[in-house]
Simulated scan of single mutants.
Amino acid sequence: MTSAPDPDVAVRRMAAESLAGDDPTGWFERLYAAADDGAAVVPWDRGAPHPLLIDWLGRPDDARGQPRPAGTAVVVGCGPGFDAELLAGHGWTTTAFDVSASAVAAARRRFPDTTVRYVAADLFDPPRAWRQAFDLVVEIMTVQSLPVRLHQRATEAVAGFVAPNGTLLVVATARTGSTEPAGPTEGPPWPLTREEVEAFAVGGLTPVSVEQHDGTPPFQHWRAEFRR
């Protein structure tokens, strides 16, 4: 019996072709367009919100046990849309963007009655109105989908969305000594080191917590919270 194609192999092939053409984000549109046609699978489409986001939203905002007050939120690299819909369900006025227009169109079809504002936009060239505009910024595994040379630029762009007194939540696959080689890794993804996660504390953001959580073996994940 012939085994099913490994979706990670197809993703890495598309990414390699885009990188060879000096277009580090072009492969996202190719992948989502192919998925629309049934010719590819989006490996990170969990069919549900990320568990670390679900857990974080369920935690009180402070030691007094107060719930998190809802405000404006943006989901970076929203993909299938499940994380954005979770936020909207918790009362957040949510914007969700992806560089892939096909991903945005698919999310709108998946959630026809949504209150989320889905937008096709580039992290490296976002609308100026988004600058320090959101009470909550959620970045789940987007920076790690870019080559390491772009991590700092992407990190600074994500941090730039956080409003005064706002919060940034980062979830990423962990690159640690026990799970990753010391040298450059083949990607995507390009998992983040602790130093790369802590680098989100830029432009007035300060770290609240940096946690390491178990994921699908042998992987671990970071969940980090920052405040402006």
Rank of each mutant, 00 (worst) to 15 (best):
S209H: 02
L205N: 07
P126E: 02
F111Q: 10
H90M: 04
Q132M: 02
L146M: 14
L192F: 07
Q220R: 15
D125H: 13
P7Q: 05
H90D: 10
A63V: 13
L136F: 14
A39V: 01
A101P: 02
V158Q: 08
D98K: 08
E85L: 11
D214H: 07
P60D: 04
A157Q: 13
P43M: 07
E85C: 02
R117V: 12
I54D: 15
A174H: 04
H50L: 03
T185M: 10
L168Y: 02
T114C: 11
Q144K: 00
E156C: 09
P218E: 00
V158R: 13
V171L: 14
P112F: 11
T155A: 13
A73M: 03
A35N: 07
S18K: 03
A40Y: 06
A159N: 10
A88E: 04
A10P: 00
E85T: 13
R108L: 12
R223N: 10
A105E: 13
G47F: 12
A107M: 12
D36E: 14
A174M: 07
P181W: 06
T193V: 00
V148H: 11
Q220K: 15
T95H: 15
V170M: 10
L150Q: 08
A73E: 05
D98F: 11
G71Q: 11
E156I: 07
T72I: 04
T216L: 12
R108A: 14
Q66G: 06
T216Y: 06
G203I: 02
P5N: 01
A33G: 08
D8S: 01
G65D: 05
L86E: 10
P127V: 03
R109C: 05
P60C: 11
V104A: 12
A163V: 01
P147K: 05
D83M: 10
G187K: 11
G58C: 08
V143M: 04
D62A: 06
S100H: 08
I140D: 06
A174R: 12
R68P: 01
A106D: 09
D37V: 03
W190E: 03
T173W: 00
T206N: 01
S178W: 15
T72R: 09
G21V: 00
P188D: 11
V208Q: 14
D22Q: 13
G89R: 10
W190P: 00
P80G: 04
D6V: 11
R59N: 08
F161N: 01
G91F: 12
R131E: 10
F28V: 02
F134M: 08
R30S: 11
R175Y: 02
P191D: 09
L169Q: 03
P80Y: 07
M1A: 14
R131S: 11
A20M: 00
L205H: 12
R175A: 15
S102W: 05
